[in-house]
Design a protein around this nucleic acid. Structure first.
Length: 357
DNA sequence: TGTCCACGTCT
DNA sequence: AAGACGTGGAC
């Protein structure tokens, strides 16, 4: 889009000045994270991609140990492509949004097998790959390939919603914020990646959601929200809805070797493709049928609680048994101490309660 | 405590 | 196009 004037509040000339101040601030204050390489070196697209997928909806601090581990185990995209999916899921366990791990693996296979191991170098082509959408395609294009992409994540939105005192509520304001962001990125060329990272570091450390540290902000002079002393009024959000309560039972079934029965979950839906324990479905009623090859024994008087994005879960621990000679598709016996770190958090909590009881 | 972050991608 | 999809830490 051509941008001559994006706001009646700030001129194009002023925008250039403010973004200069932001880039200067970034030179001094950038966060040191393992995927940021020293100035002058060429970034490895595989590392940039891996870090950006992990950082979706996830704080940098949570990402760092996972990022390091993944690169240790799978240093090249070809290594990740050749991995077994269950190994990728096991390494991702605890990081959440498991569709990211399934798509990560698929994407690695496309790049390794169909694209000669090279990530595409334009935003448009990147966006065609599994797990790469508007934000991530822009981020990789800018950071790994020096493209002038308009990188807009939640941090950029918060900074700009405040800078321009955008009264329109999210998610509708997304279009407006993208235009405002384009005003900042316009004409930057290969510096776009630096501006993106500057915005994100500013959003993470200074223009934080609550109690923003405006005294430390390099562009506070131009911030409309600050002029109004209404920083935390922006970005304006739509009303949020209540989280429903759901219930389920999780079954602890031992064999003669003292191993527990585990379950590889279906590829689709909640915790798709992840390791789990045998369980009922999770619903709004307390009584839900167990898988029919399981003989329910007795409640263990233990309950695990877990919060998902869209519901709260109460998981009752129940002892059970099966005919050891008949274990159906997707179920297998294993040492719980070998598997606990491969479980998503809801099951890990339940297993921990069981092992400590 | 409970609320928020957290647009990010896919369907 | 609105809802599904995790987690942990800050306050």
């Amino acid at each position: 889009m051509t941008v001559t004037q994006v706001s009646d509040k700030v001129s194009v000339k002023d925008i250039e000045e403010y973004r200069g101040q932001l880039l200067d601030w970034y030179d001094q204050h950038e966060r040191h994270v393992p995927w940021r390489i020293p100035a002058g070196e060429t970034p490895d697209p595989y590392s940039v991609w891996l870090s950006e997928i992990m950082c979706q909806q996830t704080t940098v601090q949570a990402v760092i140990p996972y990022y390091t581990k993944f690169l240790e185990i799978w240093p090249k995209v070809e290594d990740l492509a050749a991995a077994k999916q269950e190994d990728v899921m096991a390494q991702w366990a605890g990081l959440g949004y498991y569709a990211r791990a399934r798509n990560l693996h698929k994407c690695a296979q496309v790049v390794a097998n169909d694209l000669d191991g090279q990530f595409p170098d334009t935003q448009e082509q990147l966006k065609e790959l599994p797990g790469i959408g508007d934000y991530t395609s822009a981020a990789i294009a800018a950071i790994a390939f020096g493209r002038e992409a308009v990188v807009v994540d939640g941090n950029v939105e918060r900074v700009l919603a405040r800078f321009y005192a955008v009264e329109e509520a999210l998610p509708k304001a997304k279009t407006t914020l993208k235009v405002l962001a384009a005003g900042f990125y316009n004409g930057l060329g290969a510096e776009a990646g630096h501006l993106a990272q500057a915005f994100m570091d500013l959003g993470a450390n200074v223009c934080i959601p609550k109690a923003p540290r405006c005294m430390l902000c390099p562009i506070s002079d131009g911030c409309e929200a600050r002029k109004l002393n209404r920083q935390t009024d922006f970005p304006v959000k739509g009303a949020k809805k209540a989280r429903p309560q759901r219930y389920g039972q999780v079954f602890f079934i031992k064999n003669s070797k003292g191993e527990l029965l585990f379950h590889r979950r279906d590829e689709k839906g909640l915790l798709g493709g992840m390791l789990g324990l045998p369980s009922t479905d999770w619903g709004t009623k307390k009584q839900i049928a167990a898988p029919d090859f399981i003989d329910v024994d007795k409640p263990l008087k233990l309950k695990a609680h877990h919060v998902f994005t869209h519901f709260d879960l109460e998981l009752e621990l129940v002892g059970a048994s099966v005919d050891e000679s008949y274990v159906t598709e997707g179920y297998f016996w294993s040492d719980p101490y070998n598997e606990q770190d491969n479980l998503p958090t809801a099951f890990k909590k339940a297993l921990k309660l069981y092992l400590n009881s």
